[in-house]
Simulated assay, not measured.
Amino acid sequence: MSSAERGVDAARTVLAIDTATDSVVTGVVELTGETIGSVRVLAERVVTDHRRHAELLTTLIAECLGESGISRDALSAVVVGCGPGPFTGLRVGMATGAAFADALGIPAHGVCSLDALALETTPPAGRPDVLVVTDARRREVYWALYRDGARVRGPEVSAPATVAEELAPVFSTGEVGAVSGSASHLELVGWTETTPQVTVPSARGLVAAAASAIEAGVVPEPLVPLYLRRPDAVEQKARKLGAAR
């Protein structure tokens, strides 16, 4: 049943969570359709502190629920940014989102965090491409390229010089019209034309990325993190075995 058939009174309320970057992002939104214009933010919190993701997240969720006036039982779904992102921070948001959804008996939709950034980025007419770049640490970046709102490349993790080389053709033709993500890392891949429109995933962008699935009543697959590489933490036994080999 479409949103028009359900009517405005059947708007869904959705909890959004993302810990794929150094910022903890959460919010409660109202969803009435399948486009980003159908997403209305009721409350949102963004706190940048990569060392306190686990400590901050549940408190910020409680603040958003209180400010929005939405009880947990009134939530229709949870949307979780699945990265790409660092192992430790990313799993905090995913575990919390999955736990909320399981406890409430509602679906948890996983989305690519870079998609959420792209959906909040508007390129000028005639320059349809959007580039999203975030910090992957280890002197690397996470990145993805979008055209007319659809992801056409990525997400990938690469050295900035590699990304700069691969994107040189689209930079030279002017096809990339807007960017989002980390300003310093966008510069490292060769982009200096404009500043990023959005720096971290927003509650609005996250829910918009899952809007069509939520509206269609799709039963989501289990949340799968987009690490794109092995975690930094390695069990001591595995380290010893690797060294012996």
Score class of each variant (00 low, 15 high):
T194W: 13
D129E: 15
A136E: 07
R147H: 08
R6C: 05
D148Y: 11
A136M: 09
V198E: 10
G190C: 13
V80C: 07
G83M: 06
S202F: 06
E165W: 10
Y227P: 01
A16G: 04
S184A: 15
V141K: 08
L131T: 09
A144K: 05
R230G: 00
G93K: 00
R229D: 05
S212M: 06
K237M: 06
D18I: 01
A208Y: 02
R230H: 05
E30L: 11
D22S: 15
L226I: 02
G83R: 06
P124D: 08
I214P: 02
Y142E: 07
V130K: 11
S184M: 15
A238C: 03
D135H: 12
V133Q: 13
A203H: 03
L241N: 08
A150I: 14
S202M: 08
T121E: 02
L117Q: 02
V41L: 03
A243P: 00
V28P: 01
A4H: 12
S184W: 13
D232K: 04
G37E: 10
P84S: 07
T59L: 15
S180C: 12
E30G: 12
P201H: 09
I17G: 02
A74Y: 07
R72S: 09
I214M: 01
G105E: 00
D135G: 11
D49W: 11
L114M: 07
A16D: 04
G181D: 14
G217W: 05
T121D: 04
G66K: 14
L117G: 01
R12C: 00
A95F: 01
E235I: 11
E63K: 14
T192F: 14
A77R: 05
A208V: 00
E235F: 12
Y142A: 08
R151A: 09
